[in-house]
Design a protein around this nucleic acid. Structure first.
Lengths: 135, 135
DNA sequence: CTAATTGCAAAAGCTTTGCAGCGCA
DNA sequence: TGCGCTGCAAAGCTTTTGCAATTAG
């Protein structure tokens, strides 16, 4: 059994064709940040008849299961990426749309300290840099 | 002439009742982060007949003029706050919805460095910590 | 006077939901 | 076989837009 199937099982989800295909699309995405629409189009292009509603449902289930992360960058639509063990933040180029991932221990630690100074602990955080190529 | 009117003029916007009222609502908001709907409701409660569409248009114009900032926290709708000289980031309590502002020079500087290391310069950035009260 | 602004209602865009039928276990 | 899953279409939400009437300068 492929690793996709195992991941699905572990998440308590039935191993169905749409789920396998969507997971595999996310795994093989070159820039691994895709909107629901992106996933849907990819399915269509591959001749796989999966409804857009199912794409949304499956992505939401994957998110609940911790398989994918949902990001709300600016622009009205959410983007999804495969969850991996290593946390990272994002840098989005305002000219090209390119998304670069990074992780900075200094920032991570300061965040924890700041929350603590206010009597809180961090549940989650979102850091996105909107950048442009340096002249 | 009140300072609101001056700000509007400076922004190249005609001084109209809806604009004055919306600006004043933002200025006197206790937790100064409001959604378009919040602003609209406040207007209604005050008996001011301003269309929701106008609220959106005015907020968008204010944003373009640099008078307000638009944030896309999680939850599907944008929130607006009066722009002030001092930049800051946000900490949102997941239990109470409370929004705390903070600014950390260490994080700011690291962001700049990270962008530079990748050959970019920062146009804008968004950092939001989702927190819960510490036990 | 004239261009900017507003209100209303309709439309748009993303996402969710109801329901009948299909498919995995 | 049975419950979960899917597809379709319809509905929901936030936000935007078209247009005729109104208003600021």
């Amino acid at each position: 059994m492929s690793s996709e199937n195992l991941e699905l099982k572990k998440a308590g989800l039935k191993v169905t064709l749409p789920r396998i295909k969507i997971l595999s699309i996310l795994e093989s995405a070159e820039n691994h940040h895709m909107s629901a629409e992106d996933v849907y189009k990819t399915l269509m292009e591959a001749g796989d008849d999966v409804g857009l509603a199912t794409v949304y449902r499956v992505l939401t289930q994957f998110e609940a299961a911790g398989l994918v992360l949902r990001h709300n960058f600016e622009g009205g639509h959410a983007v999804f990426e495969l969850a991996s063990d290593d946390h990272h933040d994002h840098m989005v180029c305002t000219q090209t749309g390119q998304v670069i991932e990074f992780c900075d221990p200094v920032i991570e630690e300061r965040q924890r300290q700041i929350a603590e100074e206010h009597g809180f602990e961090i549940v989650d955080h979102s850091l996105t840099l909107y950048v442009k190529p340096k002249k």
